[in-house]
Nucleic acid binder design. Structure first.
Lengths: 159, 159
DNA sequence: GTGCGTGCAAAGACTTTGCACGTAC
DNA sequence: GTACGTGCAAAGTCTTTGCACGCAC
């Protein structure tokens, strides 16, 4: 099931630009807190992720970076994805049998994806009511919600 | 993140027994429809899954079967899991970075899991309202829901 | 200057596949 | 009797890791 570049939550160029600074700041701060360094490779990876603005896989990211003229190794991509996840800048949103998928989190602590099982298209959705349900369920059980992932599998209309 | 054997939806022995016959029947019928054969290995795999009655991984299943005295190969387990999924008898419910997880579907077309990020425990939950939200969202978009998976990540109470 | 980071290639983990033999129908 | 199934081992894919060199602080 290939991932299509179709995203429902795409930003304008200016929105993307406005995101780079703050996200870099967050990343730098988190790294510093852990005694880690802000390197050109890590900066380039975050930049590219913001540019992609949607779902991506480690491999896609690497290819995109290469096509942009950035030279980074696969190992560094994987290592940096892990750091960005720890910084809560990106989140793993869907796994198919084959590989991990990520997207920018931008403060939201959950992700809803609509997956077209016939075409393989994937689009993001927002279900605010879901947060309510989730928090209610957690409250009933004395649990603290840390995030969620919902995948809805659909076909295009006719049965 | 290891999977604990803790399940909230466990059945009594008699409930499990009552399940074996009909599920075998479904499996046999589906296989026949595809011109495939009902073999002792496939029967043993389904039996063991019903006995496990909860989340499992290919590897767990294989180990459980061995401990029950069933000799099956890893390859056959993987091949049979795929068939059972096609028959809608089991469903893939959660992927961590490492491997696929399955559970009996028993007619439900979705799965909600509460994942304790601190302990690694996983438990099932039911959120009937979620189906309503899901179907509403799909209806708005002219899509036909085929199923869903929700994972809720929690910690145990205190912040 | 030192410790963390990087690239490369090798290793790891899970899953799939090719092939010869076996068996359900 | 035939086509599908099985076990085994090898191959595949994605991801992680060991190591020597390099750079951010």
């Amino acid at each position: 099931m290939a991932l299509e570049p179709i995203q429902s939550n795409s930003m304008s160029q200016s929105e993307r630009d406005a995101l780079i600074e703050p996200l870099c700041a967050v990343f730098r701060r988190t790294l510093k807190e852990e005694g880690l360094k802000y390197t050109p490779e890590r900066a380039a990876i975050l930049d590219t992720i913001i540019e992609i603005d949607g779902l991506f896989e480690a491999d896609t990211l690497l290819e995109t970076m290469k096509s942009r003229g950035h030279r980074v190794s696969k190992a560094t991509v994987y290592r940096t994805l892990k750091l960005l996840e720890q910084s809560r800048i990106i989140q793993q949103v869907l796994f198919d049998r084959d590989q991990s998928h990520y997207q920018l989190s931008m403060g939201k602590r959950g992700s809803t994806l609509i997956i077209h099982v016939d075409t393989g298209d994937v689009e993001s959705a927002e279900i605010p009511e879901l947060i309510v349900l989730r928090d209610k369920l957690c409250a009933e059980r004395g649990l603290k919600p840390e995030g969620h992932r919902l995948q809805i599998y659909v076909t295009s209309s006719e049965s």
